[in-house]
Simulated scan of single mutants.
Amino acid sequence: MELDETDRALLRALSQNAAQTASQLGRAVGLSQPAAWRRVQRLWASGALAGRRLDLDPEKLGFGVTVFLGVKLAARGRVSLEDFERIVGAIPEVQRVEHVLGLYDYRLRVVARDLADFERVLRRRIMALPGVGSVEANVMLSEERLPGPL
């Protein structure tokens, strides 16, 4: 699907506030309500829009620590990548699983209530997984840039 400037403007407007009505979107990009609605429906149908997301504040929900883990899978007794992804993805504290190229095989985003809680998750859940070789942890100090439009 080819995106024109109006499509891009709609995507920018939706990325700022996905709860806008077709009427509000139309006013923002210079379209009528029906034309804006049709374009948004076309963006959904094409896959350019996929899913709706609610951003929660982990700290306000009691999760004060975010840690990025680099995980290198062990060479011996190698577990399949699909099995590792399925198992690690079932751990509630693991917010994101990214298969990466480089020093580590995976990058995980893990949230915990505090450092003691993170240590428990690391020792009892992540290090105990089959196939885990080495792990490097980086504690997030602050997050300056939040995800935005492409």
Rank of each mutant, 00 (worst) to 15 (best):
G47N: 05
V100N: 00
L108A: 10
L69P: 03
R52P: 03
L108K: 01
L73C: 01
A74H: 05
R120Q: 14
A48Q: 11
F68V: 15
V94M: 01
R109A: 03
S23F: 06
A48I: 08
R86W: 07
G131N: 06
V71D: 04
E98M: 04
V40D: 00
E98A: 11
L122A: 07
K72S: 15
A45R: 12
E82D: 13
G89H: 04
V65I: 14
A50L: 14
R124Q: 15
Y106I: 07
L101A: 14
R53S: 05
V110S: 05
G26P: 10
R113Q: 10
E85Y: 04
V111C: 03
A75C: 02
D57W: 08
A128G: 05
G89P: 03
G30H: 04
R78H: 10
R123I: 10
E85T: 00
G70E: 00
V79R: 08
R27M: 13
L81Q: 14
A50W: 02
S32C: 05
Q33A: 11
S46R: 12
A50V: 15
D114M: 03
G89I: 00
V111H: 14
G77H: 14
L54Y: 13
R113L: 11
S32E: 06
R86H: 11
G62H: 03
P130C: 06
V65L: 11
L49Q: 02
W44N: 07
G102M: 09
L81C: 09
R123V: 14
A35I: 10
G77K: 10
W44L: 13
V121R: 07
